[in-house]
Design a protein around this nucleic acid. Structure first.
Length: 947
DNA sequence: CCGGGCCGCATTTTT
DNA sequence: TGCGGCCCGG
């Protein structure tokens, strides 16, 4: 139950108003997430008499991260409310995908391509994907070019599918049809398609529309100002079908994604969607984040915008004090290097300055400070200045992965195989890595093995499989290059330093493993090994180089105390005690329009409603909002600066917005004080202390399994990010799983299936994404799935009336910030006369062993989630081995099992926080470990690598 | 003080 | 490819 007195009057109003569509206009720092979480808790509380359960509420957020935050707050608010796993909190895309996969059998076997894989896919299928159909408006003989114009093609496809628009010209709609047909034929979605298909589905009287009509009572949309046309249509559709109440939350002044088609018109005009009496608008205009100086400054700036909700003004919640002439500064310098130097000095000086929040006064430390950028190319010289001052920092946008020596060495394996590198050169790349203990003899052995992997010509083998990932793994294993190879333990000082460096080396190699994986997921079935190698190297040189940023410091399981450098866009939703915004010149902020070949050379501007949104408005309101967002990130300290760039004539003149900021006043005192170079040296410094950050982590069973069995394996996979080599057989497990899911769902509805229907299901759900065209494996794998599914159906069809849940999502909250997620394959319930027995069932394909204790742990974990869902403790747990059609006898489940698995999870979580990822001592676990090639235990236990 | 023409330079990113 | 800056000529 929530305590309303913790909320402001307007927040209370937002929580209590539940009979109307609601627009919450929430300014920066107004406690919007807290209010939404409170609202959900209030609705769910049975004592308020709303008759609302978790599955009746959907909450859309803009990112997964925001979803995790909201989910966590809600769960902390509702306490032990049952069935919270059934409430959808996540992105619109995530909801659409789930909706399609749960309700439309056709899409169960589909997967989603992210941006990089989509581009690889488009280039691979250039001939059939419709790219050739798109002609230049000014010259119809020029069409989009393979590789070069791929990004442009993606943008065009996105705009025509996500905007509101006129009828398309023939050539473009032909391209759209070919594009989607090709994706579909390989069972792929792209991001737009998920929403498009969900929309189509809801327009028909499908399973999905019935579900929505039945379930949904409240639809909450966070960051509503950043919604684009197709998302707006989707939201309207869900509302229309379900007749639910809409709750939209956002700030028209913080709309910064217009170049992706988002439009703050939707939040401004929200009330015109419904009858006047059916909606209510509640402003949350008290900012509890920032000092009055920050608030007035930002407010003065944004008041220059026309396109915003009228008569609204942000006011101070008084949580931070404002010291004139100290907190907020604007300094000008003669050159960018002076400016950067001053910025680094400012950071040095502000460390230890007292800062109060949440009733605690502490000294400012590195992680309290953020440097906000309009564009990434500004970062380079700033980073150099910070390095000179030995200031630790985190960046997400500097593309230097391929410049690191470890990646040069790893990439060398493939340039060597391609013939562009000598063996001694390759050898040196590895032997010259810092502090390595690589044994030259072992290296020779690994190189000899590598020699056996030159693509052979002529290529006549009909059943080849050429795994680049496998080549990397075999090489590292044979040369015995492990993380420890880079750790020097001759003295403690060296040990610590080299240990940290070794982690970065392995993290980067893990990234490289992901690069290979991205490429191979799309291209595993190339036409020949030599072509596979060739296209991989082209991909590296033309695409990957400026796509994969470094990121050891950004990984979710580390928490460094460092200055954060990021773009203003990335800073959305965040707050910092100290914000630095350097480089305030025209053409930077506001930025200049980009020239060059663009979408509008191929797409007629007239076709797209509000087309100018995509190009930026002439009044620079978009850019003003961006600066507004940047300013409002600061709780107290703000340093703006400017200097003419001596090397670039675009960035010489001070930003026009500075004039607007100069007009900001409290009483008659100007807030922005120019060239008053406060250095904090007169202030008494206190102990630096980082703010305790709540990191929300969601663990699934696969991840937990790694920690249970071998914490080092967790490090290799979840921290470093190594991806396992692909092979042609992949897909058997998922195919089985999808077949059984459809059979169970239809069986549960009472449908009895003929042999033909079972066969149709097998055809629909079976998919082997990496099979080579010429392979002899294809019929074998298909027959295996078909035979086992048929047998399974014959064996169990009589029991289908006992099915209670199919593919049931579960979640279990371990503590304030950790959530365990999972999905139970099948739950059966048998009995009569009020006496029932429940069994939780997990399916394993034949390669896995159902008897392992780890599988029992998995089932116990599911039982924990099942209890959260129903309030009951299941009676039995059971596995079913598909390949052998063997039912394991159900095992009795006791309450003590739940307690033991719970404490096991807690131990695992402690282990993550302590970052002690030790290798297991169990030889048996090592022998069965898929990652043993990357682990030094292989040598210790003398385990032969399966090849 | 203006316009013509040449020259240097070139976003933001989540799903 | 096209923008904004800048130089130059009228």
């Amino acid at each position: 139950m929530i305590n309303l007195t913790n909320y402001s009057p307007n927040q209370q109003d937002a929580i209590l108003t539940n009979d109307k569509h609601l627009r919450i206009v929430a300014c920066a720092g107004s406690g919007k997430t807290t209010t939404v979480a409170g609202k959900v808790a209030y609705l769910l509380d049975p004592s308020n008499g709303f008759d609302v359960s978790p599955e009746n509420i959907i909450a859309f957020t803009y990112t997964e991260k925001a979803a995790a935050e909201l989910k966590n707050k809600i769960l902390n608010n509702v306490g032990r409310h049952r069935g919270m796993a059934n409430m959808y909190i996540g992105t619109i895309h995530g909801w659409c995908l789930k909706a399609l996969q749960e309700n439309e059998y056709e899409y169960q076997s589909f997967s989603v391509l992210d941006e990089i894989k989509l581009k690889l896919f488009i280039d691979k299928h250039y001939d059939t994907i419709g790219m050739k159909e798109i002609k230049k408006l000014s010259n119809h003989s020029v069409s989009l070019r393979r590789f070069i114009d791929t990004s442009l093609f993606v943008k065009i496809m996105d705009i025509i599918r996500e905007s509101d628009r006129q009828e398309l010209p023939e050539s473009i709609s032909r391209a759209k049809i070919q594009y989607e047909r090709t994706l579909k034929s390989k069972k792929y979605f792209d991001f737009s398609m998920i929403m498009e298909k969900a929309m189509e589905c809801m327009e028909l009287s499908s399973n999905l529309s019935a579900r929505i009509k039945n379930d949904i009572k409240y639809l909450i949309v966070d960051e509503y100002q950043d919604i684009n046309p197709i998302q707006e249509r989707l939201i309207n559709k869900i509302q229309e079908v379900s007749q639910c109440k809409l709750v939209v939350v956002g700030d028209d002044d913080q709309n910064i994604y217009q170049w992706r088609g988002s439009n703050n018109r939707y939040i401004i005009d929200f009330e015109s969607k419904f009858e006047v009496s059916a909606t209510k608008s509640i402003p949350l205009s008290t900012n509890y984040r920032s000092s009055e100086g920050i608030i007035k400054l930002a407010e003065t700036l944004i008041s220059n915008n026309q396109r915003r909700i009228p008569n609204k003004e942000m006011e101070s919640g008084g949580l931070q004090t404002f010291t004139k002439g100290q907190d907020i500064l604007y300094n000008r310098y003669d050159s960018v290097s002076d400016e950067n130097e001053a910025l680094a000095n400012y950071i040095d000086n502000i460390l230890g300055v007292p800062f109060t929040s949440d009733g605690e006064t502490r000294g400012i430390t590195f992680s309290d400070i953020s440097i906000l950028l309009r564009t990434w190319n500004k970062a380079e010289t700033i980073v150099e200045a910070l390095e000179r001052h030995k200031i630790p920092y985190i960046t997400a946008g500097v593309n230097q992965l391929f410049e690191t020596r470890e990646i040069e060495a790893a990439l060398g394996l493939f340039t060597y195989l391609y013939g562009d590198l000598d063996r001694p050169e390759l050898e040196n790349l590895w032997l010259n890595l810092p502090n390595n203990k690589i044994d030259p003899e072992k290296l020779e052995k690994a190189l000899d093995d590598l020699d056996s992997k030159f693509p052979k010509l002529p290529e006549v083998d009909t059943n080849w499989e050429y795994s680049l990932q496998g080549i990397l793994w075999d090489f590292m294993s044979l040369a015995e290059i492990y993380e420890d190879s880079f750790i020097d333990d001759t003295n403690t000082d060296l040990f610590q330093r080299t240990k940290e460096r070794a982690e970065i080396i392995f993290f980067n190699l893990g990234r490289f493993s992901q690069v290979i994986n991205d490429f191979e997921e799309i291209n595993f079935n190339s036409s020949s090994p030599s072509f596979h190698l060739f296209s991989f190297l082209s991909f590296i040189n033309y695409v990957a180089r400026d796509y994969y940023p470094e990121g050891w410091l950004n990984n979710p399981y580390t928490t460094p105390n460092a200055v954060q450098i990021m773009t203003i866009h990335q800073a959305k939703g965040l707050e910092f005690p100290v914000v630095l915004i350097p480089g305030l010149n025209n053409n930077y902020l506001p930025s200049k329009k980009r020239g060059g070949l663009n979408v509008w050379h191929f797409l007629d501007r007239q076709l797209i409603e509000e087309q100018s949104r995509y190009e930026g408005d002439p009044d620079k309101e978009d850019e003003r909002r961006l600066l507004y967002v940047a300013l409002t990130r600061s709780q107290k300290f703000l340093l703006l600066s400017q200097a003419p760039d001596l090397n670039n004539r675009l960035y010489k003149v001070e930003s026009d917005y500075i004039q607007e900021l100069t007009r900001a006043k409290i009483g008659s005192f100007p807030i922005l004080i120019s060239d008053h170079r406060q250095d904090f040296s007169s202030l008494t410094k206190i102990d630096q202390k980082a703010k305790e950050k709540v990191k929300n982590i969601a663990l699934d069973f696969t991840t937990l399994k790694d920690i249970f069995e071998c914490p080092y394996r967790f490090k290799l996979i979840s921290v470093f990010g190594f991806r396992y080599p692909l092979n042609q057989r992949m897909g058997v497990g998922r195919s089985f799983h999808n077949c059984l899911m459809e059979i169970h769902k239809r069986g549960k509805e009472g449908e009895s299936l003929s042999k033909e229907e079972v066969n149709e299901i097998v055809d629909r759900q079976t998919h082997f994404p990496y099979l080579t065209n010429s392979t002899i494996l294809k019929p074998r794998l298909w027959d295996k799935v078909r035979k086992n599914v048929e047998e399974y159906y014959e064996d169990t069809k009589d029991d289908f009336s006992q099915i209670e849940f199919v593919e049931q999502d579960i979640q279990y909250k371990v503590d304030e910030s950790i959530l365990v997620l999972g999905r139970i394959d099948l739950i059966k319930k048998v009995g009569s006369d009020g006496k029932y027995e429940t069994t939780i069932i997990e399916f394993k394909s034949d390669e896995e062993s159902a008897d392992l204790p780890i599988t029992k742990d998995q089932l116990k974990l599911y039982a924990l989630g099942h209890r959260e869902l129903t309030g009951e403790i299941a009676d039995y747990i059971m596995t079913y081995v598909i390949g052998e059609n063997k039912v394991k006898t159900p095992e009795k489940l006791y309450e003590s099992d739940l307690n033991s698995i719970e404490s096991k999870i807690r131990d695992a979580v402690d282990l993550i926080w302590s970052e002690k990822f030790l290798r297991t001592e169990e030889k048996k676990t090592c022998e069965e470990c898929f990652q043993i090639r990357l682990c030094s235990k292989r040598v210790q236990h003398d385990i032969k690598v399966k090849r």
